[in-house]
Amino acid sequence: MKNRSIFLPVVTGLGFLFLYAPIASLIVFSFNESKLVTVWGGFSTKWYGELLRDPQILGAAWISLKIAFLSATLAIIIGTVAAFALSRFPKFRTKSLLNWMITAPLVMPDVIIGLSLLLMFVAMQGLIGWPAGRGMTTIIIAHATFGAAYAAVVIQSRLVDMDMSIEEVALDLGAKPMRVFFDITLPVIAPALVSGWLLAFTLSLDDLVIASFVSGPGSSTLPMVIFSKVRLGVSPDVNALATIIILIISVGIIAAAIQISRSGKKLGN
């Protein structure tokens, strides 16, 4: 391999530029004094100040964080249990049904998930009176459902990779299955639980379409507020918000990645 062509590095470089230039521009222009994207009016943090005085955005952010936290927690429970059933129980009657249902949300367009869940919530309310109206509860249920699908994928791959002999030894020595799960399986798959939870959390925080369908009055999430703002054009306070979100997520992801690679080394893989 002497005559390495420059084609691949150039395309890859441009590809990464394509991926990161929009993100970089969001951050740069959040500090722009001017309201115009193309005009640099000097460094300013005034959009951050404006953001912090906007009760609509702050309220929506708080709602979104609550929904994301609760739905990710619910998703990780459902996802772990589903992944465990699929990877540890050799055969049960509903196995292929469960396998289908846990992976289908991954490829289902948001508009279909949102519409179908809303229509079902309405029908359920008519039949049994629950859920009474739409709001945070229905958004949490919707997000937990697709979050569980993503979490299950992450956790299942860890469960399949994991050395099962430790579990088998514990079972042979007479430990009850439940105890084996909590004392052995869970600590080993902990990194996958963390990344699965983070994934479900960010997906929930990010979702516009499904939340728009299943939300009710007074439960507008952050993406819904952002969407109605940016439909009218570029607004620099959204850039400031984007910068804050990107900063928090990047720090979280990098910290999680470091933590996971450390604990991975400790466990010897």
């Binding site: 969001l26 960010t202 940016v230 570029v234 918000l241 979100i245």
Partner: peptide, 14 residues
């Protein structure tokens, strides 16, 4: 991992 909505929004400015 970073907000899909905001990344699409960034393209408006481009």
């Amino acid at each position: 991992w970073t907000s899909f909505l905001l990344r699409v929004y960034a393209w408006i400015g481009f």
